[in-house]
Amino acid sequence: MSIPVWILDIFAAVMLLVAAVSAGQLVVARAWTRAGARDADIALSHLLMGVAMAGTLVASLSTLPNAAWIVIFAVMTAWFAWYLWRETRGQGAGALVSGHHAPHLLHSAAMLYMFAALAGPASGGGAGMAGMATGASGGMQTLHAPTLALVFALLLIAYSVRDVDRKACADGYFHVVGRHVTPAGPALATAAAGVTGQGGPAGLAGGGDSAVATMVQPEAAEVPSGDLVTGPVNASPPERLLLSPAVVKGCRVAMGVTMAFMLLIMI
C-alpha cells in the first residue's frame, strides 16, 4: 500500500491554489507593466511550480513532459542564481542565506532536481511524472541520489520555518507594484520614505498580516501632487487579499512544505 490518494489530492489541491493565487497576483499587480514587473518572476515561478507539483502528485493533473519541466526549472534556477549573485555583490555572502531570491533559488533548484532525478516506474511515460502513486508497477516513484533529496528537504523545511517565524511583511514580494495611487515627482520619494522609513514600515508592517503591500505606480497618479496617499486607493478587497504579505508568505510556506514532502516520500 502506498500513500492514500486522498492525501496526495489534498497536497495537489493546495498546490493548485498556490498556482491560482500566483496567477491572480500577476494579474492584479499588472505584472506585465514596467512598474509591476519587478517581482513577476517570483509569482511566475510559484505559478509554474504549483502546476508542476500538482501534476506530479496527481496523474490527471499532469501537463507537460518531464523534459519540458527540466528545461523550465533549469532556466528558473539560473535566473534566480543570477539575481542572488547580484545580491551577494551588494549585501555580501549573507545574501546566500537571507537574500530576497535565496528561497526562490532553492525552490527552483529542488524542482529541477526532482524532475531530473526521477527514477520511478513511470519516468519513461509521457506527461509529467504521471502521478506519484500510479507508477507502472503500482509502487511509489523514487529519485536518484536520495542524499540530495534529503539535503533539499532539510533546506526547504528550514526556510519554511524561517518564513513562518518572520513577519509577513519582511520578505513579501509585490512591495512596490500594483495599483496604489501616490503622487508623482518629489512627493513620491516622500511617500516611499514615509511608508518604509520612519516609524517602521507603517503602511506595510504596521498593518500586520492583513496589510496590503504598498504599491507605487506614478503613471496611475490620480491625486494632486503633494497629497500623500499611503493607503490602498483602488485595490478591491480581493486584490488586497491576493497581494497581502500574509498570502505571499502562506504560499511560500505551503510550497516549501509540499516540496519537502514530495522529496522525502520519493526517497
Binding site: 512598474a35 519587478r38 519582511a170 515627482g185 513620491l188 518604509t196
Partner: peptide, 28 residues
C-alpha cells in the same frame, strides 16, 4: 518626462525595497 518619472519612481522603489528588507530583517 514620463520616462524620467519612471526612473525616479524606479529608484524610489528600489530604495523602498531595500529599506523594507532591512526593516523586516531587523523586526525578525
Amino acid at each position: 518626462m514620463a520616462e524620467m518619472s519612471d526612473t525616479v519612481a524606479g529608484r524610489s522603489r528600489a530604495a523602498a525595497r531595500d529599506r523594507l528588507d532591512a526593516a523586516g530583517a531587523s523586526a525578525a
